[in-house]
Design a protein around this nucleic acid. Sequence first.
DNA 1: CCGCGATATAGCGACGTCGCGATGCGGCGT
DNA 2: ACGCCGCATCGCGACGTCGCTATATCGCGG
Lengths: 111, 111
Amino acid sequence: MAARPTLRHERPAGSALVRDDAKAARIAELLKAVAHPLRVRIVAILCLGDQHVNALAERLGVPQAIVSQQLRILRLHDLVAATRRDGFAYYRLAEPQLRSLVSCMEKCEGR
Amino acid sequence: MAARPTLRHERPAGSALVRDDAKAARIAELLKAVAHPLRVRIVAILCLGDQHVNALAERLGVPQAIVSQQLRILRLHDLVAATRRDGFAYYRLAEPQLRSLVSCMEKCEGR
DNA sequence: CCGCGATATAGCGACGTCGCGATGCGGCGT
DNA sequence: ACGCCGCATCGCGACGTCGCTATATCGCGG
């Protein structure tokens, strides 16, 4: 039963989110954690591969402390995780759902 | 052509969000506007069809004032719009991208 | 042992959203 | 004319995040 390849129609089926308020809460938390311009970009970058803090800060053009703070928020929600190596803190995505979300956002075209 | 069924691979292609901070900001705003358990559910419901305030309040099991306030927030971000008819205020989705977001969230399985 | 690069955190004031209760307001039926 | 219904808004205190600066931590080479 696995693979029904996502029928074009895709009955909204509707109500997973409607009835299950627990799921809605989880989703909302996920969204809230990413809902910040910097965090969106950070997640998008990490989507392409691990990076250490300074690299992120430089690439984003913002001071290191800011990046670190946003990373903390992402960390608190278990969306990213850090690994120390060579004196650098390499961050990586820890929540697979983020990838689908990002790819959804990438497409979602900006008018 | 329509249907390239979303190749499993789906190169994130990457950098639309990474370089374009304006787009990141727009996305972030969109996410922030929905990032609340109640608003997630409201949007999910409206995705299935228009509804008036009381119907939403009852279906969600929360007082009307709360629903109205959340609707106001969604309205301020132009995510929903209201139409008065028969003395009721029927709300509908005003931002097409919400549909993709919702269907993304619906699938996005809850662990 | 000391300094330095790489990160993390504390403190600040400002702001927006949260839930809630109460109140404002417009339209319709009697 | 009046009151009720459907909806919106206000005011409250509480809380979290915002950007920013300054400081704390940690590991390593000299």
